[in-house]
Design a protein around this nucleic acid. Structure first.
Length: 493
RNA sequence: GGCGACGUACCCAAGUGGUUAAGGGGCGGGUUUGCAAAACCUGUAUUCACCGGUUCAAAUCCGGUCGUCGCCUCCA
């Protein structure tokens, strides 16, 4: 049986108990990218948010059908393709390939379906025809417009009132400014398809209505996307889909907050302040990016600044290091016996581990509160580290921290964090950070070698001066019982 | 002009009626160490933008003020 949960619904502006249309099953449609340029950190927040949400639902035994579209027919694609001197659909395909590489590198699972506008034209035309039949749309000069006043519920999602809108656009047969295009008559040099109204292409909003109903049916459970899509995109989708089918569209509307830049403005290509996810993944491991998004509640705005990713990376490293310590512990006793004989800090690991699932799930079941859920992970990591300071922990603590390791694997299964092999992750951190600072690994290793010789000769002055030299390169040297280790100090991006 | 969101420490941030206001980053002190680093301990908000109100009780509810942001044109 899937676990019940609560979820904020933009329609009601409240957190509500989630109830599926079909028991145990969730149909989810998320607005994906318009593929005219690389995926940036703002888009990636939406991708990670919904990927993680799906991941969690499946972890909790829901059967989920996850659909995320590509908008591959669009003004900006046409304009950009013209600049590059290639076909719009060729540009779109290229960007879709890049997108797939990027989300794979980010560690996202593939959606169950990824419909595209260009291969959904038949369904779109059928839906437009149906809207005309049902009196919600009118054709004029090869264009088809949605008659907003024919749909009394218009504005239910966004709170907008038709008469209060600023949009002054009229023309091409449009009757009132707030009506919007379902079908646009073709212009020279644009991709176009045959239709009952002449050659043309779909308007922006109709694609999602058509693709969602094809993949998930006229009514489905959850529709997601960025907060900036609430109006007009999602409002228009509701008008189209419900106008065409006569029944309810998405039952829940789930919107993620936007990235905000230091000045307070949102990140966006039109703002000229976007960081591509491709560039970021050169500098930081995917899990640091993931944690950066998940450390805040998905509906809150998320501030972006120079320290955002370095801070997130420091957090992920902290968790991996706790896992590393736990994995290094040995022993064959029963966990309870170890706890009993090794004292309060040992007992605390056991207690926290056993209380973990309940707290962790409670947070995520309450409107997907990843921020709160992660706080329990950090508490557990601290308890493990505290226990690890005990002399006997390494030899006898194994069975005890096995419980904590089980919790970390829950975190991976539910949120996609901490799943990597520890040493592999640490290597990735070193490589990416060294690359970011332009330091060669061999230089570090030869200095460390030199220092080792000095230390063996108890030449502390020489050893320390080498350490200072490394320090100046942001390399932190750690002398441990097991030998010399080193880390890259995490500095601003 | 219309619609909506938000304002919690140096920074990020959870908390939405009732124990000492989670967690992370940073910074200060300590344990440890050849010295360091890491880890751990400890200090960093008697207070939640401001002003009123409701209540036995509010960061949490209501009203107002100020400030910030998003949408209304393409936007995750």
């Amino acid at each position: 049986m899937p676990a019940p949960f609560r979820l904020y619904n933009t329609l009601s502006r409240r957190v509500e108990d989630f109830t599926p249309i079909q028991p145990g099953h969730i149909g989810l449609y998320v607005c994906g990218m318009t593929v005219y340029d690389l995926c940036h950190a703002g888009h990636a927040r939406a991708m990670v948010t919904f990927d993680t949400f799906v991941r969690y639902l499946r972890h909790r035994d829901w059967s989920v059908k996850f659909v995320r579209n590509f908008t591959d027919v669009d003004d900006k694609i046409i304009r950009r393709a013209a600049e590059l001197g290639i076909e719009p659909l060729e540009l779109a395909q290229q960007q879709i390939d890049y997108f797939h590489e990027d989300v794979r590198a980010l560690g996202l699972d593939e959606p169950d379906e990824e419909p595209r506008v260009s291969t959904s034209i038949g369904g779109i035309i059928a839906m437009v025809e149906r809207l005309i039949e049902r009196g919600h749309a009118y054709a004029a000069d090869g264009n088809v417009w949605y008659d907003v006043r024919s749909f009394p519920n218009y504005g239910a999602l966004s709170g907008q009132k038709v008469d209060e809108l600023r949009n002054p656009d009229v023309g091409n047969g449009k009757r009132v400014p707030s009506d919007f295009a379902l079908w646009k008559a073709t212009k020279p040099g644009e991709p176009s398809w045959k239709s009952p109204w002449g050659n043309g292409r779909p308007g922006w909003h109709i694609e999602c209505s058509a693709m969602a109903s094809r993949c998930l049916g006229d009514s489905f459970d959850i529709h997601g996307g960025g907060l900036d899509l609430v109006f007009p995109h999602h409002e228009n989708e509701i008008a189209q889909s419900e106008g065409a089918s006569g029944c309810g569209y998405a039952r829940w509307w789930m919107h993620n907050g936007l990235l905000t830049m230091p000045g307070g403005r949102k990140m966006g290509k039109s703002e000229g302040n976007a960081f591509s996810i491709r560039d970021l993944l050169q500098l930081f491991p995917a899990e640091a990016v993931r944690l950066y998004y998940l450390q805040n509640h998905y509906r809150s705005p998320l501030p972006w600044d120079q320290n955002a990713l370095p801070t997130a990376l420091a957090m992920v490293c902290r968790l991996y290091e706790a896992r590393e310590v736990a994995e290094s512990m040995k022993g064959q006793e029963r966990a309870e016996d170890v706890a009993k004989s090794l004292g309060d800090d040992a007992q605390a690991v056991l207690d926290l581990s056993r209380a973990f699932d309940t707290q962790f799930y409670a947070a995520l079941d309450d409107d997907f509160n990843t921020s709160k859920a992660l706080s329990y992970v950090f508490e557990l990591a601290r308890a493990v580290n505290r226990f690890a300071n005990h002399k006997k922990a390494r030899k006898r603590g194994g069975p005890l921290v096995a419980e904590a390791l089980r919790c970390f694997s829950v975190v991976n299964d539910a949120l996609g964090l901490l799943g990597d092999d520890v040493s592999k992750f640490m290597q990735e951190v070193k490589e990416k950070r060294l690359g970011a600072m332009g330091i060669e690994r061999e230089d570090i290793e030869s200095l460390l070698e030199e220092r080792l010789v000095a230390r063996q000769a108890r030449d502390w002055a020489r050893a320390d001066s080498i350490r200072d030299e490394l320090e100046a390169k942001n390399i932190v040297v750690m002398d441990t019982a097991a030998g010399v280790d080193w880390r890259v100090r995490i500095t601003g991006a």
